[in-house]
Simulated assay, not measured.
Amino acid sequence: MEAHPSHAELSHVLPKYPKTAGSLLQTYNDLKLAQQWEALEVLDVPSCARGAVKGRRPNTEDTLFVVPCSLAESLNISWFHQAFHDLGKPPHVYLAINADDSNIVYYKLSPGIVKPAV
């Protein structure tokens, strides 16, 4: 993993959370290379024992937060509350669920009950 070009941007978080390092690397590279997000920053989220990614979609001004996880992980409501708290209580967070075959599904999570757009 150290030979990968993205390792330098992730090196301050990867050694702290080896169980979630693969999900973080995969998500970071998808956002940077495939989706071409701008101003990417890797954040440490110690209460969730992982790193997260902060950045913007191309040609937008909104800062978004993405928390990677594995499809095999079990998450709970208190975990989500901690993630929102540690990230500064943004209006929503994207959960990047990584599968073993390198697929990533992004879910938009909002705190509380939110009425869907019509």
Results as ranks from 00 to 15, higher is better:
residue 74 S to C: 08
residue 81 H to K: 13
residue 58 P to G: 04
residue 94 Y to P: 10
residue 76 N to K: 05
residue 86 D to A: 15
residue 88 G to M: 03
residue 62 D to Y: 07
residue 88 G to S: 09
residue 70 S to V: 04
residue 59 N to W: 02
residue 88 G to P: 13
residue 64 L to I: 08
residue 65 F to I: 09
residue 68 P to Y: 01
residue 75 L to Y: 02
residue 73 E to R: 03
residue 89 K to C: 09
residue 63 T to G: 02
residue 61 E to H: 10
residue 74 S to M: 07
residue 94 Y to M: 11
residue 65 F to E: 08
residue 72 A to N: 09
residue 60 T to V: 10
residue 69 C to I: 12
residue 68 P to E: 05
residue 63 T to D: 09
residue 67 V to K: 05
residue 83 A to N: 10
residue 64 L to D: 04
residue 72 A to S: 14
residue 70 S to D: 08
residue 57 R to E: 15
residue 76 N to G: 08
residue 93 V to W: 00
residue 90 P to N: 01
residue 80 F to K: 10
residue 70 S to N: 09
residue 60 T to F: 05
residue 94 Y to C: 03
residue 93 V to A: 09
residue 68 P to H: 07
residue 91 P to Y: 00
residue 70 S to I: 04
residue 86 D to N: 14
residue 85 H to L: 11
residue 93 V to P: 11
residue 80 F to N: 04
residue 92 H to L: 04
residue 73 E to N: 13
residue 76 N to R: 10
residue 74 S to W: 00
residue 67 V to N: 06
residue 63 T to K: 02
residue 93 V to G: 05
residue 67 V to I: 13
residue 70 S to Q: 11
residue 58 P to N: 01
residue 89 K to A: 06
residue 77 I to M: 06
residue 72 A to W: 02
residue 68 P to D: 08
residue 90 P to I: 03
